[in-house]
Amino acid sequence: METSLHAAATAAAFRETPAPFAGPAPGPAPLLNVSGLTKYYGDMLGCRDVTFALWPGEVMGIVGESGSGKSTLLGCLSGRMAPSSGQVAYESERFGVVDVHRAPEPVRRNLLRTEWGVVHQNPRDGLRLAVSAGGNIGERLMAVGARNYGTIRAEALRWLREVEIDATRIDHLPRTFSGGMQQRLQIAANLATGPRLLFMDEPTGGLDVSVQARLLDLLRNLVSRLGLSVVIVTHDLAVARLLAHRLMVMRRGKVVESGLTDQVLDDPQHPYTQLLVSSILHA
């Protein structure tokens, strides 16, 4: 198709310009290289000067209270929101190194449908409620050219099984699903094209505790089995401890502390992190 040719040409152009973060990286390269990412809403700060590298298979949690800039950061990382300054470089399987915010829109949108997944807090934002469960999972496959109904359906069934949704629900509309099921369906829909990088915004928010536990366990298994890299935003430190390898603690748009998850939670250094840990974990 013309788009893919165009995208490939763009990708070639990217490779010719030196990769902004090319360094003597031993072994495999980071999947995501973020430097100086800053977002202002007018004169209001969203997030400021966020810099980190995410490696393949790593799960990074972004924690902090509401309004600390977590979701803004996630939006900028996943290319859905333009930052005021800073860079996000993604090592794409298909396009090579992509400077996410300088790449043409088709490349960004292609990544969001193929190599990336976005799991919204509210499943309604990530699902088509008037389309059956199978159709929701199949959409990503059809978006990348799947044109065999039988194959699409088989894949949809496979992913429903993966997220523990009964196969008999395949033709039901998501609005007949419980909140936990909708969230699992949203995850299945994201995984159908075999993404390498997932962005999750409070995936367990609004679910009751037992439903949360099931979802967390499912996510943990899928992430480790599929070797996914994940950036997960959560205000729930228990969720962060269970899923994330490392954490960034955000406050008022800035990263105040980062490190290995158990380091940050068991031996917090920054006053804000100490407050967060003492007020949430030992409530």
């Binding site: 290995l260 380091q263 068991d266």
Partner: peptide, 9 residues
């Protein structure tokens, strides 16, 4: 022990 394990900084 926690320092040795990298749990404490």
């Amino acid at each position: 022990l926690c320092c040795l394990y990298g749990n404490y900084r």
